[in-house]
Design a protein around this nucleic acid. Sequence first.
DNA 1: TGATAATAGGATATTATCATCCGATTAGCA
DNA 2: TGCTAATCGGATGATAATATCCTATTATCA
Lengths: 153, 153
Amino acid sequence: MLSQTAEYALRAVVLLAEQMPGTPARVGELAEALDIPQNYLSKTLHLLALTGVLRSARGKGGGFMLARPASDITLFDIVDPFDRLGARPACLMGQGECSEAQACAAHATWIAVSQQVQAFFLHTTLADLAKKGRAAIPRRVPRAGRTKKMVPR
Amino acid sequence: MLSQTAEYALRAVVLLAEQMPGTPARVGELAEALDIPQNYLSKTLHLLALTGVLRSARGKGGGFMLARPASDITLFDIVDPFDRLGARPACLMGQGECSEAQACAAHATWIAVSQQVQAFFLHTTLADLAKKGRAAIPRRVPRAGRTKKMVPR
DNA sequence: TGATAATAGGATATTATCATCCGATTAGCA
DNA sequence: TGCTAATCGGATGATAATATCCTATTATCA
């Protein structure tokens, strides 16, 4: 669902959200705690600093920290610089076949599903992720239906 | 959302579904019509033949055709050999942090959203895609649990 | 039976993503 | 001011996804 890079970013930022506010965390610490290559994480977080999600401080006592309260940072903010979730093509099939103008029968359904995914990222905040424990939301699981066994890649 | 390969497969199979039943279509035709590299499409469709979605015939008059009625082929059947949509990890963040045992507040919501995506692929058939025009039925997708709050960016 | 038309499929090239290396830059502190 | 700790960021390497090439195999038809 998410690229490796976006997932790294997400995990690191969640960890940052648990940090004492005002105190930056070093990339080395984060990288070790999350088992992520340090130099890679460094660049990833640097990009988030450029987009305004994080603040970075160089030099002794430096590191990364949230640029604003966790409740003001959405998953979209964190993930979008790496995987662009917005601006997704209207149809599953890319350029082909099915468009707003002449939609296939599944078009409306797909749009609805796809927008729920987007809404999830747009509306879920870092603060939501940080809160542990059973969520208030009841778990309603639609049935999975048949699953055919397929040839592995 | 889908890999290039899966998208190619989907578009090609949709085209196959519009073919006269019983008459195979050549890869060359499909590839040209869809602007897909021919040899690449050949292998892609071959895999779908192995999984039983298509039937292939070699030699003169050969080609690919659906192995069963379009209404019996789900999008999952077509896409799963390339992108495994099933068996997706429980949480966005992969190994970390948030699991069934100790879920973050967004966990249940994410699961619900993610399962709607799966349900879409499992329950939408090729016949649905082939039908043009405004859909009669958006096939009733249960609504995701409301997320907590909306933060304007 | 030979010519031709098609898929089958291994080997290989190309490209994008993921990851590492290492020097440059910046800030704090003695 | 110089030492040290940290990010910055360009260059490069590794790996996986995407695409191409070429030959083998198979089926049809004259």
